[in-house]
Design a protein around this nucleic acid. Structure first.
Lengths: 213, 213
DNA sequence: ACACTGCTGTTACCGCAAGTAACGTACTGC
DNA sequence: GCAGTACGTTACTTGCGGTAACAGCAGTGT
């Protein structure tokens, strides 16, 4: 068996990918509370190997998260960067996000409700740690796009960051709620949210016969 | 020692309140990962009593959550219902929420990142379960206020619900980010978010020298 | 041939938190 | 006196994250 250091490295990486795919399958099946034992079993091995590869559960989570986050971000960036009017871009971005969470709700739940980990005691692995849990990454990403493409005057950077995180949060919360109780079509939801962003709340009139007056 | 059934009941309720206050103190100190043991110790008792009162950890969480949620909701309702122009109402509501999370970040973290529980295995206690974890409650509440006070035409109910959850999500995400890295004053954040809701994103012009064109 | 390194993998264990069982005690109402 | 019910305890089970300690196997330098 020939095996140079190079081929070793690639073999190790392939192993890692296999483990991640097994973890993915388990998460897809069991949701966010997949245990390390279950993942190891799915991969046909035992726990310590997982720990050698990923350090701790947070490490595995992070590795899984960047995979999915990168995939999602690629789609979002495409929608965000397309050379069409702003409103169309916003709608395309919202729709891309919502389509993604609709297609894989289990993965979505795993990414969004990571249970915060904690409780590691004290060892504390110096690995990356707190690698921007998706929502923050999305928020920063969107902030950058806004700052790049929209003219917000002086202090626009700060504004863009606030808006980036705010809009991502809006998208997330509305999507979460919509995913639970499917109250309308995806297209309608996109329209409603875009309308909100377009100031329809400010434009709408007061209701006749409000309480008290 | 005299003790009628009535006084027993009230005594039990007082005990429950004491336990909740002890739990509150621990959560305030240790954050969301407070253990049942720690809470019991703080209350000067041992675990089984907690379980007799609250069923499981989720029950305790729920009891704590409704306390704080009710308090927060009272403040928000006041801001939401005041008879001033809509923009002022929106700003007051945002500010009320942000002031609350700024004042008690530990409680806030406990409410917002309840670690999803899970992992109970199978027993699964038929107690209430998933009692609208605050964000959903806020979203529904806001949706109702919007539906009541804003004229959105036909199908306005659906729109109001989408907006309710969306706006709450925006508030939450922006608040979460702002709480971490204090990038600006609370008043500024309120202004930025209100501007976003007021359609300033749609009104702003494209940036000169965008990428690619 | 040899030890050495570095990876793969194992079994068996630790610590800790949630949740329970079994038991004892005080008080009330009949 | 006796049932009922709340309070309280100690001691336990289960399950998960995480870690030794050990064993095999490929390739490398001497």
């Amino acid at each position: 068996m020939e095996m140079t250091q190079e081929s070793r490295r690639t073999a190790s990486e392939r192993r890692r990918r296999e483990l991640l795919e097994a973890a993915d399958r388990v998460v897809l099946r069991d949701g966010p509370e997949a245990s390390m034992n279950a993942i190891a079993a799915e991969a046909g091995i035992t726990k310590p190997i997982l720990y050698r590869h990923f350090g701790d559960k947070g490490g595995l989570y992070r590795a899984l998260a960047v995979r999915h986050t990168d995939a999602l971000l690629a789609g979002l960036r495409a929608a965000l960067d397309s050379p069409v009017p702003r409103r169309d871009r916003v709608e395309a971005t919202l729709d891309t996000y919502l389509a993604a969470i609709e297609a894989r709700p289990q993965v979505y739940r795993f990414l969004m409700h990571p249970s915060d980990e904690g409780q590691t005691g004290d060892r504390g692995f110096d690995v990356g740690r707190h690698s921007a849990p998706l929502l923050r990454r999305l928020g920063e990403e969107l902030a950058q796009v806004i700052a790049e493409r929209v003219d917000l005057g002086p202090a626009g950077g700060e504004l863009a960051r606030v808006w980036g995180h705010g809009i991502v949060g809006m998208m997330h919360a509305a999507g979460d709620w919509w995913l639970r109780e499917q109250p309308c079509s995806r297209a309608q939801l996109v329209q409603h949210l875009a309308d909100l962003l377009w100031g329809r709340l400010a434009a709408a009139g007061d209701r006749p016969g409000g309480p008290g007056f």
